[in-house]
């Protein structure tokens, strides 16, 4: 099960790309309610958004981004059949990449 969901919508002036990533985005400050221990920091550090393998946006983030991060971008011109790719890396070395074809 991929953690990344991508949705796109072609509109007259632009193509809207929205992405939702399932990730805890732990700050490292939160305590486990049962044990009282601190939950270690676990958050996405970099996210890359590419259109037809061309990098459109690189995002660096801290744990100030909400749990299950959501981002949206607007591509100026995109055709049906184009691919968009979202990939992320977190501070514990996990990473994931997903491709999506614009309808």
């Amino acid at each position: 099960m991929s953690t990344i969901k991508i949705r796109s919508k072609r509109l007259d002036d632009y193509t809207l790309v929205r992405t939702l990533i399932a990730h805890p985005m732990e700050t490292g400050k939160r305590k486990n309610e049962e044990t009282g221990e601190l939950v270690p920091a676990h958050f996405i550090q970099t996210l890359t958004f590419a259109h037809n393998n061309k990098v459109m946006s690189e995002c660096q983030m801290g744990f100030g981004v909400s749990k299950n991060p959501f981002f949206s971008f607007r591509l100026k011109s995109a055709q049906a059949g184009d691919t968009v790719t979202i990939s992320w890396h977190d501070n514990l070395g996990y990473h994931e990449r997903k491709e999506h074809i614009i309808q």
Binding site: Y14, T27, M56, F63, P69, R74, K76
Partner: peptide
Amino acid sequence: NPDLETFIGARFK
């Protein structure tokens, strides 16, 4: 990238 509109949507704490 210049091919993107100046538009960003996000959610933060």
